[in-house]
Simulated scan of single mutants.
Amino acid sequence: MLLCYVFFGCIGFVLLLYCLLELHYFLRTLACIVWAKLSKKKVYILDETRVAGICLTTDIDNLLNHMNNARYIRELDFAKIDFNERTGLYHQIKKNGGAIVLGATTIRYRRFIKLFSRYYITTKIIYWDDQNIYMEHRFVTPADGFVNAVVLCKTRLTNCNADQIITDLMVNSSQCDLETAKSQKPEVPVELAKWIESNEISSALLRKS
């Protein structure tokens, strides 16, 4: 009888957690951190990372046949965790007393990811300035290499200098010296420059109002 009470008590506790929290999201976050730390090799800060995914029944929209539009953004959380852990980016930011705030995101959908279809997400840094790091993510179908969606994310760093963080990671990787690191900073892509301009216009309008 006591075992029955314990069993049903545990079941009830788990159900309560699911009601109060999106429990599987936090469990998956923990799993991503552990997997990136223990099972994957370190990555140079300017290299591209890749994580695999599959569209499950928990990901689909009300048409019941392809991934919900909002789910793309949610999946990026796990891609970013993998990138930040493997490159050492998050550790370097915390080491310098900084923090991360998502400043803006834009996504362009090109083709549905259908139910039970496999995909992978690529993540790479495409530009940075003193305050922000800009990343590009792509949802790609493995079978034909088709890019289903492209996402631009602006990550704002607080209490630290983004340019210094990236430079330190480049130098600490032993792949380059300070001068070489500075020369590796890419030019801002045209589409990103236009997006940054759009965000600045939006901010100016909001300040006026």
Rank of each mutant, 00 (worst) to 15 (best):
R108K: 14
R111K: 15
R111Q: 15
F112P: 10
F112H: 14
F112G: 02
I113Y: 01
I113D: 02
K114R: 14
F116L: 13
R118G: 07
Y119N: 10
Y119I: 10
T122K: 03
T122I: 12
T123N: 11
T123M: 02
T123R: 06
K124V: 12
I125G: 00
I126C: 04
I126P: 03
Y127R: 03
D129T: 06
Q131Y: 04
I133T: 01
Y134P: 02
Y134G: 02
E136S: 09
H137P: 05
H137F: 08
R138Q: 15
R138N: 15
V140L: 10
V140R: 01
A143G: 01
A143H: 09
A143T: 11
D144W: 04
D144E: 12
G145E: 13
G145H: 11
F146N: 04
V147Y: 00
N148I: 00
V151R: 00
C153E: 08
C153I: 05
C153H: 00
C153A: 10
K154C: 14
T155W: 00
T155P: 00
R156L: 05
L157E: 00
T158Q: 12
C160P: 07
N161C: 12
N161S: 05
A162I: 00
D163T: 13
Q164L: 13
I165H: 05
T167E: 12
T167C: 12
T167N: 10
D168V: 00
D168T: 04
D168A: 09
D168I: 01
L169D: 01
M170T: 00
M170W: 06
V171G: 07
N172M: 11
N172A: 10
S174D: 10
S174M: 10
C176D: 02
C176G: 01
D177Y: 08
L178M: 10
E179C: 01
T180G: 15
T180A: 09
K182E: 06
S183C: 01
K185H: 06
P186Q: 09
E187R: 08
V188Q: 13
V190Y: 05
A193W: 03
K194F: 09
W195Q: 10
I196K: 15
N199K: 13
N199C: 11
I201C: 09
I201T: 10
I201E: 14
S203L: 13
A204S: 15
L206Y: 13
K208H: 11
